[in-house]
Structures are given as C-alpha cells and as structure tokens.
C-alpha cells in the first residue's frame, strides 16, 4: 500500500505556482529525501500531505484516505520547519498537553527517551537552544506513533554531533517499518539516509531515483591536482576544466586515459580522483 499518493497536485499562491501538476507515490516503508532549492515547492508539498494546505487541483491520499482524516487518525507525524512551540511553559507541561491529543500516542517515557529530552524537562520553552527546541519538535513528531513521518529540514540549527545522534535515532525508528519523508539542505544526509531522492525545482520533479542514479545524471569522474597550469582540455576524455585557486579540476568521461596523459606533465602533483557528488548532480539538475 502506498503511504502517499499525489495525483496531478497543483497549488498556486497568486501568480506564483508553487506546485505544478505533481504526480508521485511513496510506498509504505520507504525513506525518501526531498531536495530542491528554496521556493522549489518542498514546504507546500509537505503541507498538502499534512492537510494544512488544500491543493487547488488534484488529489492527495495518505494511506488511501484524505490527508486530514489520516492526520486525525494518528497515522502521520510531522516536524515543521521552524515549527513553533507553546511559549513560556516547561517542556514537561508542553509534552503532557500534547500527549492527550493523539489517537494512539507512544508512551510518554518512550517519547522522552527517543528524543533525548530527559535532561530538559523542567526547562522553559523560551530558554531552549536551537538544537534543544529541535529535539522537542522531534518528540512532537513521533508522539502520535505515526506510520508516516514527515520532517521539514529536521537538522537545521544542530551541530555535527546532534545531527549524528538525530540520524541514529531516526534509524531505529525507520527499523519499525515507518515511512519517512524528509526535506533537507544537507545533501550528504540525503545520500546516506534515503532509499530514494526526489529533486524538486519550480514545483516539478526534475529527478527521482536512488542516490547513485541521481549522481549518474552528471556522469564522469573528477580529477583534481595542483601545478600543471597549462590548458588540459585537449587531453583524452576531458569534457570540462575548472580552476579553483591553486587546484585544477578536470571532468572526464575516461579518467584512466586522462590520467595517463596527464602524468606526462611532471609539474602535476597531489592528484585526486572522485566520483561526482550529489551536490554536483543537484547543481546540474536545478541550474
């Protein structure tokens, strides 16, 4: 069964078309990363799946039901971008208030443990750091014990350490067979964590596949080195050359042949060969 089915979903704000006849389905159990530049339609799409925004045209189905019904039934949990917390109450009171509002919530102790909130229960919500507030939002997202979890830029404001802890706790949640959809600007997170990556631009899907499929869009290998300031575009396999400070980066369709030719130049040093990153693919797709 599909967790999410979008059928020619369109949403416009005035003359701006935020989401343009989007068709997509997400099978249950999948972990999907939603990428796209600002204004690509990521937030509008997630809002329609959550039932916060109604599409102008097309249909949104969540586990075969309409979005609001699925939300009320406790099938969906979400972490909104910059989602607000109730002001000037303790974290404990906030959690207790929310816990009574779900159809079949996880036990409160389990929520506190999974979101690592044990240490900040007596803290006032207006004195939390960015990372702490994000953990509280995460707690609210999983509290419903949802089958579908939607996370809009979940690791914004977290340091490297918190990000790692966050994804570790996500891993244990995903193990339970939950469907997870997350939007992110950290492409490494998408690459590492998602089964599938969907790239949105101007409200349309411009790429849809696994990380390696998306990277294949760019193709070729990168060869970086210092020295050798001459023109290398004539070498075998080279399709592009770029200078980044002291380094030169060649894009090649045949890195072996390019390297053989390149090594004839004795001033070339510190050679590095790499596959194109997801970022390269992303920039190519949305440029």
């Amino acid at each position: 069964m599909d967790a999410i089915t979008l059928t020619s979903v369109t949403k416009a704000y005035g003359s701006l078309t935020a989401v343009d006849a989007l068709d997509a389905s997400v099978p249950a159990g999948q972990i999907l990363a939603l990428l796209g530049p600002n204004g690509a339609g990521k937030s509008t799409t997630t809002e329609m799946i959550l039932g916060l925004t109604r599409p102008d045209a097309g249909t949104v189905r969540v586990f075969g039901r309409d979005a609001v019904t699925a939300m009320r039934a406790g099938d969906v949990g979400a972490m909104l971008q910059n989602g607000a917390l109730l002001w000037d109450v303790t974290v404990r009171r906030l959690l207790r208030l929310m816990h009574g509002l779900y159809a079949h919530p996880l036990p409160l102790d389990e929520v506190i443990e999974r979101a690592h909130l044990g240490g900040i229960l007596p803290s006032n919500t207006n004195k939390l750091s960015g990372g702490q507030a994000q953990r509280v939002r995460f707690a609210l997202a999983i509290m419903a014990d949802p089958r579908l979890l939607i996370l809009d830029e979940p690791t914004v404001g977290m340091d490297v350490d918190s990000r790692r802890t966050f994804w570790a706790s996500m891993d244990s949640l995903a193990g339970g067979g939950r469907t997870i959809v997350f939007a992110t600007h950290h492409l490494d997170e998408a690459d590492e964590f998602a089964d599938r990556i969907v790239v949105l631009d101007d409200g349309r899907i411009v790429a849809d596949g696994t990380g390696s499929q998306i990277k294949a869009v760019v193709g070729g290998r990168r060869i970086g080195f210092t020295g050798g300031r001459g023109d290398h575009t004539g070498l075998a396999g080279v399709v592009a050359m770029e200078r980044r400070g002291a380094r030169t980066v060649l894009t090649s369709t045949d890195s072996d042949a390019t390297l053989r030719a390149l090594l004839a130049d004795l001033s070339v040093a510190d050679i590095e060969t790499s596959a194109p990153s997801l970022e390269d693919a992303f920039l190519t797709l949305v440029s």
Binding site: L52, G77, L85
Partner: peptide
C-alpha cells in the same frame, strides 16, 4: 508563533 499549526497536526 505557528503553534496553532502544530495543534492542527494532532487529532
């Protein structure tokens, strides 16, 4: 503050 939207994500 947007808290209202968070409430709309409950039952």
């Amino acid at each position: 503050s947007g808290w209202f939207r968070q409430l709309m994500l409950t039952s």
